[in-house]
Computed example of a mutant assay.
Amino acid sequence: MKTCLVVDDSKVIRKVARHILETLEFSVEEAEDGRAALAHCENAMPDVILLDWNMPVMSGMEFLRALRRAESGGEPKVVFCTTENDLAHIRAAIEAGADEYVMKPFDRETLHSKLQIVGVA
């Protein structure tokens, strides 16, 4: 079973994402910010990370840069999950190491499609 780490400061978004991912047969873990997500990845690197952009403690971009520098940090696919829709934000995320992005709010079909694009669904 594939594993997904959902990183978002919104408990509601984490709950919705968990529900969708579990229907897609993912084992799901959650983190409320980038620092908690990094700690999780040090213990067990997931197959894919659904990552929020704006979070307290450590933002999605800060987390992504730290992840990609870590040993085995290049392995998980990273899908940014954000309300930021301008091209500059998307380009910055891809340049920092994101594999794909999905706009909030998202539904099952949209998320499934993005996971297929990155090769984990």
Score class of each variant (00 low, 15 high):
1 M>D: 10
2 K>F: 11
3 T>F: 00
3 T>A: 06
4 C>Q: 04
4 C>L: 12
7 V>N: 08
11 K>C: 15
14 R>T: 01
15 K>T: 09
16 V>W: 05
18 R>A: 12
20 I>R: 06
23 T>M: 04
24 L>T: 14
24 L>I: 12
25 E>P: 07
27 S>F: 00
28 V>H: 05
32 E>R: 14
36 A>N: 13
36 A>H: 09
36 A>K: 15
37 A>L: 08
39 A>I: 01
40 H>W: 01
41 C>Q: 04
44 A>M: 15
45 M>S: 12
47 D>W: 07
50 L>T: 03
51 L>N: 03
51 L>E: 01
53 W>Y: 05
53 W>I: 01
58 M>H: 12
60 G>P: 06
62 E>A: 13
62 E>G: 02
62 E>K: 06
64 L>E: 07
66 A>R: 13
66 A>V: 01
68 R>K: 12
74 G>D: 13
78 V>S: 00
80 F>K: 00
80 F>M: 09
80 F>V: 07
84 E>P: 01
85 N>I: 08
88 A>Q: 15
89 H>F: 13
91 R>C: 05
92 A>R: 03
93 A>M: 02
94 I>K: 13
96 A>S: 05
97 G>H: 00
98 A>Q: 01
100 E>Y: 02
100 E>L: 03
101 Y>L: 02
101 Y>D: 00
102 V>I: 15
103 M>G: 14
104 K>D: 04
105 P>T: 01
108 R>Y: 12
109 E>M: 08
110 T>A: 11
110 T>R: 11
111 L>H: 08
111 L>C: 04
111 L>M: 09
113 S>D: 09
114 K>V: 11
120 V>L: 06
